[in-house]
């Protein structure tokens, strides 16, 4: 049990992680629409409770693997806004020297093993990090984020089987946002609950409300503790929703879903829900919450200015970092 102060500190921490993700993503979306950020952005808005609730349990020595929708995971893991925006702009100061961009943003020092442009690319890598944690005799765990779409990729099934077989300290965190790109879940898989698939591999499958950060935090805590005890993997399915489109912002007035559905889910905005809980519990007033938003927005503006002014990579960078030992 945590005492009152620690409990309040945790609640504030979860709130701040979610606000940082929301602000980072909304600003990134604006910059993409203004044509300032090149390429494609897959934004995490609506799903903040999942990354925040899970990653709040982790240290830098615990790893995560991420997805094409990966900014939220890195923000939650403690990502630096300046290095993140610089990467999205393709600048040399970015996390990956501007060579990865949104879909490959990573910070290995934080244990963030990379966003991934390939749906289902992450699970095999996650079990490798977990294997390494066990091999090196540590108590560290690896959290593997993936979506409902990736749960149809063979890589997920191979990794799930191997993780359970080897009792690896990995948590498969399925962010079921109801859509594989623009295809609704009931049109891409016959199961409704992806957690059901856990039984096929001999691991627990847990379903949690992915809009409720405390519920995610609690369920993830049990799965992570189990993994740290050496009892093997868990499949944690978080039912969530993507407020924006698969790529970019829009999200409403689209052919693949009704606006009414989006509005229904937006009534359960994970940050709004949590702020009303915090106010009711007397942990954080509306004014105090607003102050957090203001502070984070200022952090984002500072980082965007930094990124806009930062130089592009020099031409020589094109051929650097292909190999560790130059050929």
């Amino acid at each position: 049990m945590v005492d009152g102060n620690e409990e309040e500190q945790l609640l504030r921490d979860l709130h701040r992680r979610m606000v940082r993700i929301r602000v980072f993503e909304e600003e990134a979306g604006k910059l993409m629409e203004q044509g300032k950020i090149p390429g494609a952005l897959h934004l995490y808005v609506g799903e903040e409770a999942v990354a925040a609730g899970v990653i709040a349990h982790l240290s830098a020595e615990d790893q995560i693997t991420s997805t094409h929708r990966g900014h939220g995971h890195l923000v939650a893991k403690g990502g630096d806004f300046r290095l993140m925006y610089a990467e999205l702009f393709g600048k040399a100061a970015g996390y990956c020297k501007g060579k990865g961009g949104s879909m490959h943003i990573a910070d290995l020092d934080l244990g963030m093993l990379g966003a991934n442009g390939i749906v289902g690319g992450g699970p095999p890598i996650a079990i490798g990090a977990a294997f390494s944690n066990k091999y090196r005799g540590t108590q560290h765990v690896t959290c593997c984020f993936f979506g409902d779409g990736a749960s149809n990729e063979g890589t997920f099934h191979e990794a799930a089987n191997m993780a359970a077989l080897f009792k690896l300290p990995v948590i498969f965190v399925c962010e079921n946002n109801g859509f594989g790109e623009f295809t609704r879940q009931d049109r891409h898989q016959a199961v409704r609950d992806i957690a059901d698939r856990a039984a096929g591999y001999g691991m627990p499958g847990v379903i949690v409300d992915g809009m409720d950060v405390l519920a995610v935090h609690e369920a993830a805590g049990e799965a992570i503790a189990r993994a740290r005890r050496g009892e093997g993997p868990t499949l944690l399915e978080c039912k969530t929703y993507r407020f924006f489109d698969h790529v970019g912002v829009r999200g409403m007035g689209v052919v693949y879903r009704e606006d009414s559905e989006v509005l229904e889910w937006r009534k359960r905005d994970p940050i709004t829900l949590f702020e009303s809980h915090l106010a009711d519990a007397g942990v954080m007033s509306a004014d105090a919450a607003a102050a957090v938003w203001l502070e984070v927005r200022s952090e984002a503006q500072d980082a965007i200015t930094f990124a806009e002014q930062a130089p592009y990579p020099a031409s020589a960078a094109l051929l650097e970092d292909v190999y560790a030992t130059p050929v």
Binding site: Q63, L113, P124, I127, A129, Y135, R136, T155, E158
Partner: peptide, 17 residues
């Protein structure tokens, strides 16, 4: 599970093995 095998090597190598 060849993808699992190669992926396991990648994750293990990225973390020091």
């Amino acid at each position: 599970s060849e993808s699992g095998i190669v992926g396991m090597a990648i994750g293990a190598a990225a973390t020091g093995l």
